[in-house]
């Protein structure tokens, strides 16, 4: 599904190298988690995948279902089926949540040569999916993310993901700022989308989200590289021992 090869990335504005050769393959139907201390490059990876400005790829490649991702505009990546759930969802005063969602969905459908979804059909689908995430109708009417609590913003991200039904979902610290109940809602939303045709890359600092979204593979990232890969037990090891020991061990091995 998603293939990242030897990815090197530096900041465009300054001479700071963030990613120093990331190799990662996410297969369809699998959930991969990336854990790592702050500043390891996790969020940069998410932004580079989605096509945000400000980063320069100096080496390496990324493909989604065989298509070169790095040359594409952000909207082309979305049309291809990539979805980034933002760590900090952006507030857009003046644009209603419904309008936003419908514009997004229909832009993607148009780019794929599909017919636009009718207003009536859209409303029906949106309401049903919102209900599953306990997002009330009032929230849908409000401007995008404006006045939303942290938990509401993250649920709104998952709602967008559910509406767009992407092939490859990248979740950037979706657990940050969530209380236990909100985390369960978000995790349920993600789990409902798990299927054989879809890949997930779940970026998180803490293990607790992975209690609810069980990963198939866990990677530890440090200083711009994947330093260790393992099964779900690796996440538990982080929880118990912290990063220091794992990093020391990985450093010794390298």
């Amino acid at each position: 599904m998603l293939e990242i090869k030897n990815l090197h990335v530096k900041l465009e504005e300054e001479d700071k190298v963030i990613l120093k050769g990331v190799d990662l393959t996410v297969e369809a139907g699998k959930v991969h988690a990336i854990m790592g201390p702050n500043g390891s490059g996790k969020s940069t990876l998410a932004y580079v995948l989605s096509g945000r400005d400000g980063y320069q790829v100096t080496e390496g490649s990324v493909t989604l279902e065989g298509e070169e991702l790095l040359e594409m505009e952000p909207e082309e990546r979305a049309a291809l089926g990539l979805f980034l759930a933002f760590q900090y969802p952006v507030e857009i005063p003046g644009v209603g949540n419904m309008t936003f969602m419908r514009t997004s969905l229909n832009s993607i459908r148009k780019a794929r040569g599909q017919e636009e979804m009718s207003s009536a059909e859209f409303l029906k689908v949106m309401r049903a999916k919102a209900k599953e995430l306990k997002i009330d109708a009032e929230m849908l009417k409000r401007p995008v993310n404006v006045g939303f609590s942290g938990g509401e913003k993250k649920r709104n991200e998952i709602l967008q993901m559910a509406m767009l039904e992407p092939k490859m979902c990248v979740l950037d610290e979706t657990d940050s700022g969530l209380d236990v109940d909100a985390m369960r809602l978000v995790a349920d939303g993600v789990n409902a989308l798990r299927d054989a045709g879809r890949g997930f890359l779940v970026i998180t600092h803490y293990q607790r989200l992975l209690d609810h979204i069980k990963p198939d593979v866990v990677h530890i990232m440090a200083d711009g590289r994947i330093v260790k890969t393992g099964g779900p037990e690796l996440a538990l090891e982080v929880e118990t021992n912290g990063y220091t020991e794992i990093l020391a061990e990985a450093g010794a091995a390298a």
């Binding site: 505009e73 909207e75 979305a78 644009v95 936003f100 997004s104 832009s107």
Partner: peptide, 23 residues
């Protein structure tokens, strides 16, 4: 960027933000 990451082409996204500004 948020709009574009959700699939809205750059020009349309800009138009939407202009309208939002005037709202």
């Amino acid at each position: 960027f948020y709009l574009r990451a959700r699939g809205v082409p750059e020009e349309a996204a800009q138009g939407l933000l202009v309208l939002a500004f005037l709202a």
